[in-house]
């Protein structure tokens, strides 16, 4: 290697560390809420006021904060898991069927139907919320978890159809023709061709749908009344409304709200990072 070249590479190396420094400082501030949540959850108010920044001595950790939080928040977590899992599965199942209809054949009226779905992406959902409330009341779905699921499933259709259609269109035609030759019905074609071929995008869409429902609080806030039915969104809002705040208990509750997401991310981090990078290029 010539001296000039190695010099050039060397200078690049040296030039990279300011970038690392800037990125790390961004990341540290970005991770601060997570850090505060974790360390405050082991302190009581007095300890927190005395020492807001550093973690407490592990020997004096207040595990009772966690016990309190578990008792309070686990039912909400269970409700939210039910809503988010059922909702995600239903949303994608319905959307795959619809996307198959649009992607495979040009049936009469499909252009019109397609625009009917796409217009929804432009419509502001907010103007709907008041009539939606009274509609759910008439259907006696108010104060049920099913209302949240069904409204979320309906709300996710336009976006998921939009993404899935283009993915299904890209599946090689030969596969479908071969399946048709073998006498496979449309449903069988979806199960044996579409699902295996679009598994990565389905994964990314599921994560997005799951996160969306996990973080939603506006819909549950107007739909749910009974404490037993609260999802995390509403539960945490009520917790925030208490007058005397035990920050340790509150932070421990927040942590519980994040645990299922931590588990989800541990298993799907790679898929998510990759899927987003690819999906972005496509969309």
């Amino acid at each position: 290697m010539s001296a000039a070249l190695s010099d050039a590479v060397g200078s690049r190396r040296r030039k990279d560390w300011p970038k690392h420094l800037i990125i790390w400082s961004f990341l540290c501030i970005e991770l601060l809420p997570l850090y505060m949540m974790a360390q405050v959850s082991f302190k009581n108010n007095a300890e927190f006021i005395q020492n807001p920044w550093l973690p407490a001595n592990p020997l004096h950790w207040h595990w009772e904060n966690w016990a309190f939080a578990a008792k309070l928040i686990l039912p909400y977590v269970a409700n939210t898991v039910f809503v988010a899992v059922t909702g995600t599965v239903a949303m994608l199942a319905v959307a795959v069927l619809g996307a198959y209809f649009f992607a495979r054949y040009k049936m009469p009226g499909s252009g019109l139907l397609w625009s009917a779905f796409m217009v929804l992406m432009l419509l502001p959902g907010i103007a709907n919320i008041v009539p939606l409330f009274s509609l759910l009341k008439e259907m006696s779905l108010l104060n049920t978890l099913y209302a949240i699921i069904i409204v979320s499933v309906a709300g996710g259709q336009a976006f998921n159809l939009f993404v899935l259609r283009s993915f299904i269109e890209d599946i090689p035609k030969d596969l479908f023709e071969a399946a048709e030759m073998d006498g496979a019905s449309h449903l069988q074609r979806i199960f044996h061709v579409v699902l295996p071929m679009s598994s990565s995008i389905l994964g990314t869409l599921s994560i997005l749908a799951f996160l969306g429902m996990w973080n939603d609080f506006l819909l549950p806030l107007i739909i749910l009344r009974d404490k037993e039915l609260f999802t995390l969104g509403v539960g945490l809002i009520y917790l925030d409304g208490e007058y005397v705040k035990q920050w340790g208990q509150i932070m421990a509750s927040y942590f519980f709200a994040a645990i299922p997401l931590i588990v989800l991310f541990l298993f799907t981090m790679r898929l998510f990072v990759r899927g987003l990078s690819q999906g972005a290029i496509k969309g």
Partner: peptide, 12 residues
């Protein structure tokens, strides 16, 4: 690392 903060729910 960028994705890590997403484990904290938006509401939280």
């Amino acid at each position: 690392l960028l994705v890590v903060p997403m484990i904290v729910p938006g509401l939280v």
